[in-house]
Design a protein around this nucleic acid. Structure first.
Length: 831
RNA sequence: GCCCCCGUAGUCCAAUGGCAGAGACAGAGGACUUAAAAUCCUUCCAGUGUCGGUUCGAGUCCGACCGGGGGCACCA
């Protein structure tokens, strides 16, 4: 045979594979010249797509997690480029933060050097990793050029009353020697260093994210189906809206009533005592003159000494102290003893509750510990909580509740609020678990807060024309954490005249939480060349919202919630014409080794640079993307990079086998192979667009297998369909294995870049199968399979079924109850 | 304690309610080779965690349970 003779001549009997390292070195400079991923040319007629990867923190070189994240983001960005979109796919660095500062302390140097060195290392690695970033849109949050706009934004928030200072017991990490936002405390531990977080009373800056709680919740309807359900759930839980009522209780011997918050006003008749948070101002006020001040002070000391870890213990016994005061239940005038306890939180609701032990487990635990009354007011059909010690929290019929008797929970809630509202004793109310965002940090390496404290004028914003307030050089300055910002010790920096009155004043020495930086960086990419504005309104309106955001689920409630908040604020300030920043979100999983997160101390660290040196960039990218669904964790122990190398070589060899010339008319090619090509392209598109990249690659593998077969034992290497297949393989592979794809593209006689080749047009006529297998069932059991036309009608298929000997034999004279026909797939005859 | 997600070959994973297997890893065998590697071909392996329900038909939908993972956690 001519084909096999040709083959023997062409393929050396020895192993044939391309030199991975050589190919990588070969194409990088060529791509640098072509810049296939430069976006936003003014004359670009293509429709836009904004594909965004979460920007990295520059701590050392890229690791396996980066490799996965950027491989996935790249598939999406490169796909849309192939589909003819003007894709913006930028990258930058989230460059402020503690690791740089800690490294600087260790080296007794300025954090800048360490930061920019690492950025350079990562940038070089990203280039070698063939990330399709637009290198003309880079930003670093630690550049004064960037953080100037943090300060501008802060002042915008300040002007709107959305940035404010208050005294509060804040989360304090004794190890990092700085305060933490609520979101940065994970199970009572600091998210950075895993040390137990304590409380400290400080005056700090907050952003009023709670003003946006309802919109942050309600606008999630726009994200439904576009964001992972898991992230939406986490944000919902985090915001934690609850609906209930505020009820006023008159206090004996106090002129003003105390307001409590409850979600169960229906159980008001069951209230048997009141509890106030031991660490609240209300408790301190109520205890004054009660005669139990000393006991209370002792109890409070114990409460303050407890860490969050102690508080989190689930089996912690209830403690508290009777304040020797009484409240009057507004529904029946009963006298309720007032207790102070640490099971009531000072900063949720009003810091005071009515206790209904029969229907709330915590209240019941407390009542049993303190021998207080338990009064059942809802008949749920369950056993008496007095006996069981289990509170009955469910719905039922109201009893012992005056005018509410016989009502259901929801009816009783509505009725009692109405009754009490008429007496000005209650009002429907909402509460949130979400707290305002504490942004002050007592550290050096961050954005200085642009406020000057003047002894006579108070807080004075730094005038806009004096922005940025730049960080001084840290060389020779003690950056060691000591509970107050190192900036405060730099006399030449901190002492300034008041912008208002000119008197001696001091700069605010704290810096901003670095999450401030990342809450709007996606806007800045559109305008990195603009020095007069944070972002160009028109450019932002062109590119935003981000069409596709890719990043780790670790940011589900921190970065993603803050970014949504900033977007809404900027919208309200008239800077944006949209309210949600990220239309679609993909959360990739983590890269594990032997079932657990990689770490040096655990001894299971896989170094990305080693893997790249052994298997090459393409194989690692392919292995990451093929390992499974992107949102699942990848266990590197289950992954076979050498299998990827094998496949890429197999694909690459096909490009060398093709003997037809570029531009040959595919229509004259082998029909069977052409159908496989078009079906594959169609399936690959569909899989990529639905984030099933592993499936997309499986389809490419099938196409490679089919083409191999066609070359070796089918239509042969000169058939135009083989070229069509090889080109489809190269273009498909360009999403995940750019070096191999470019090499194939060149082998096929084309000029670079394959990234810009364009997704082949799919011929719908070629998507139709010649025949499909229909299954013939009796009572749901498969008896026969027949080949039929894909366009067969239900009735024709039924006729064929009854004509089938096996079926007619099975049916015989039996009574047919039902025939279910789904042409062209099956006929099911129910006897 | 409350909420959410997931259980398919030895492994990683596919399968608009319609033939459980697309793809791969590992294993076995064969061709080629003096041999090995590489390459090519062939092949073994589960009835979908358990029990029940809905349906002509369930891996897929519903309920309970078991197992694994995650989120929140004294939020009134």
């Amino acid at each position: 045979m001519k084909n096999s003779l040709e083959l023997r001549g062409r393929i050396p009997l020895m192993h044939e594979a391309y030199d991975i390292q050589h190919v990588q070195e070969k194409w990088l400079p060529i791509w640098d010249q072509i810049e296939p991923f430069k976006s936003g040319r003014a004359d670009d007629p293509r429709p836009k797509k904004y594909v965004l990867d979460m920007f990295p923190y520059p701590s050392g070189d890229l690791h396996m997690g980066h490799a996965e994240a950027y491989a996935l983001g790249d598939v999406i960005a490169r796909y849309w480029v192939q589909k003819g979109f003007n894709v913006m796919h930028p990258i930058g660095w989230d460059a402020f933060g503690l690791p740089a500062e800690n490294a600087a302390i260790k080296r007794n140097a300025d954090p800048r050097a360490w930061t920019y060195e690492n950025i350079a290392v990562q940038k070089a690695s990203m280039r070698r990793f063939a990330c399709s970033f637009d290198w003309n849109r880079v930003l670093h949050t630690c550049d004064p050029e960037y953080y100037k706009w943090n300060q501008w934004l802060f002042l915008e928030l300040y002007k709107k009353g959305l940035a404010y200072r208050k005294d509060s017991a804040v989360n304090w990490c004794p190890d990092c020697q700085t305060v933490l936002a609520n979101e940065q405390v994970v199970a009572g531990l600091c998210e950075r260093c895993d040390n137990a977080v304590t409380k400290k009373k400080l005056n700090q800056w907050y952003l009023k994210i709670t003003d946006y709680a309802d919109r942050l919740l309600d606008d999630m309807s726009q994200l439904e189906g576009q964001w992972p359900e898991k992230v939406l759930m986490m944000q919902r839980n985090w915001i934690g809206r609850s609906i209930g009522a505020e009820v006023k209780f008159v206090i004996e011997g106090r002129s003003n009533p105390v307001t409590i918050y409850t979600t169960r006003p229906d159980t008001l008749y069951g209230a048997t005592f009141m509890v106030v948070a031991a660490d609240s101002e209300l408790a301190a006020e109520l205890v004054a003159g009660s005669g139990v001040e000393a006991d209370f002070a002792k109890y409070l000391d114990g409460v303050k000494a407890a860490t969050d870890i102690d508080r989190l213990a689930t089996d912690r016994p209830k403690t508290g102290i009777f304040l020797n005061r009484y409240a009057i239940n507004p529904v029946n005038g009963e006298k309720l003893p007032i207790w102070a306890s640490d099971y009531v939180l000072a900063d949720y609701g009003t810091g005071a509750i009515m206790a209904v032990p029969a229907h709330d487990q915590r209240d019941l635990d407390f009542a049993r510990a303190m021998k207080l009354d338990v009064k059942v007011v809802v008949d749920t059909g369950e056993e008496d909580p007095n006996v069981t010690g289990i509170a009955t929290g469910g719905d039922g019929k109201m009893i012992n509740s005056g005018s509410l008797n016989g009502l259901s929970k929801s009816d009783a809630i509505a009725k009692i609020i109405e009754e009490l509202a008429a007496k000005d004793a209650a009002i429907a109310a909402k509460n949130y678990r979400l707290r305002d965002w504490l942004i002050s940090r007592q550290r050096f390496w961050g954005t200085p807060i642009p406020i000057i404290h003047c002894p006579s004028c108070g807080e004075v914003p730094v005038p806009e024309d004096q922005l940025p307030v730049e960080l001084p050089d840290a060389t020779g300055i003690d950056l060691k954490p000591k509970g107050s910002s190192p900036l405060g010790a730099i006399e030449s920096w901190v002492n300034v005249p008041c912008p208002k009155c000119g008197a001696a004043a001091k700069r605010d020495a704290d810096t901003m939480d670095t999450f401030f930086d990342s809450s709007w960086y996606f806007l800045r990419y559109t305008s990195v060349d603009r020095h007069d504005v944070a972002f160009d309104k028109k450019a932002v309106e062109t590119w935003l919202p981000v069409d596709q955001y890719v990043g780790g689920v670790t940011h589900a409630i921190l970065h993603l919630l803050y970014s949504r908040f900033f977007t809404k604020v900027l919208h309200d300030l008239g800077h944006l014409n949209f309210t949600e920043p990220f239309t679609k979100l993909l959360n990739q999983g983590m890269v594990l080794m032997d079932g657990s997160a990689m770490s040096k101390s655990r001894g299971n660290l896989v170094r990305l640079s080693d893997e790249l040196a052994t298997h090459g960039v393409d194989a690692i990218r392919l292995a990451m993307v093929f390992a499974g669904p992107p949102e699942d964790d990848v266990d590197w122990a289950d992954v076979s990079p050498s299998g990827s190398v094998k496949f890429l070589n197999r694909a690459w060899r096909i490009s060398g086998d093709v003997t037809s010339k570029p531009g040959v008319d595919f229509k004259t090619g082998d029909l069977a192979l052409r159908k496989v090509v078009h079906k594959s392209l169609h399936d690959i598109s569909f899989a990529v667009e639905s984030f099933r990249f592993n499936v997309a690659i499986a389809r490419v593998m099938e196409l490679v297998n089919a083409t191999r077969k066609a070359i070796d034992s089918g239509c042969g290497p000169s058939d135009p369909a083989v070229r069509e297949a090889a080109e489809a393989i190269a273009i498909s592979l360009s999403l995940v294995a750019p070096f191999t794809a470019e090499e194939m593209w060149e082998n096929l006689g084309h000029k670079p870049a394959v990234a810009l080749a364009g997704w082949p047009t799919i011929d719908p006529a070629l998507l139709e199968a010649d025949s499909v297998t229909a299954i013939l069932q009796i009572n749901g059991k498969i008896l026969e399979r027949i080949e039929v036309s894909p366009n067969i009608s239900d009735s024709d298929l039924e006729k064929l079924a009854f004509a089938n000997p096996t079926i007619s034999q099975a049916v015989k004279d039996a009574e047919i109850k039902k025939i279910i026909t789904r042409a062209p797939k099956l006929v099911n005859i129910v006897l």
